[in-house]
Nucleic acid binder design. Structure first.
Lengths: 149, 149
DNA sequence: TTAGATGCAAACAATTTGCATCAAA
DNA sequence: TTTGATGCAAATTGTTTGCATCTAA
């Protein structure tokens, strides 16, 4: 049930998408950043900085940890990435497309995505009670797979 | 609008509650742990480990960082405390009483608490779709105070 | 050309651990 | 008394930064 990749197969189209993302974030389009962006766009999971670095080095072995963290930070800051903190370990990243929330399998660590317009509507109702406007939210469900019976 | 303290004023009653919490977690009732538990039970906010340590040292200056982290970890593991990750900085702790979620003021860092039975019901409906039972969840709304009109 | 990006290594921040000593049960 | 708890300091983990050197624009 792996999600389809977010990048087209055609190498020119891929390069164009990556370029758009980096330039859109106000960044120069360098080789390390292209590798990092490609890694994120290809990721079907929610890798942490270490995993992003490892995968990026498969494309270009000279990429440093510092560049990885710096690039992740800028892209997240500019809204191209979302960061999450699922309990222990470092921050985990994913390309920010349509907003969605997460269901984490506490036994396997697998992460599923979902959206619920109903929940989002209720959230704003709650914020209203406090006199607030919501600028962001995070909802993480932790669950166990139900035994087949 | 500070929440009332979770501990009674009477010193004997306070000691009994703290003892109950520590013993209930399978821990020996030591002076450092009593101080840490008292700090958490008295906390009206959501202190991080550093703040817990500082407040505990006001009770007993000899308390170490290691004991603070160790005690927080066990109490959280046993379900007496909840931990949160509101963006940057270390984990933040609070006594686990009735479950509730949080609304964080992105400008001031203030944290408000709320519960919504409606949202919780929808959460289980979503987990059902994946064949999961929810064992825990975390919902954090980030908001800005609405300008007074 | 030149401002911005890089790798490296050192610095930081948050948390965990080994160990000799201490104290609750 | 003996098993678990403590403080200390060192080790880990995750992340950030200074700096001399590159390189995209």
């Amino acid at each position: 049930m792996a999600r389809a990749t977010r990048l087209p197969d055609h190498p020119v189209a891929r390069a164009a998408i990556i370029q758009h993302m980096l330039a859109g974030a106000g960044l120069r389009v360098t080789r390390p950043r292209q590798a990092i962006a490609e890694v994120l766009l290809l990721a079907w999971d929610h890798p942490d900085a270490e995993a992003v670095l490892a995968r990026a080095r498969a494309i270009d072995p000279s990429i440093s940890q510092a560049t990885t963290y710096r690039t992740l930070a800028v892209l997240a800051d500019k809204g191209y990435l979302r960061t999450h903190n699922f309990g222990t370990g470092g921050a985990r990243y994913e390309v920010a497309e349509q907003h969605h929330d997460h269901l984490v399998d506490v036994d396997t660590g697998a992460v599923m995505e979902f959206v619920s317009a109903e929940i989002e509507a209720l959230q704003q109702k709650i914020a209203d009670r406090f006199g607030y406007d919501i600028v962001d939210h995070q909802l993480v469900l932790f669950g166990k797979q139900r035994a087949k019976g």
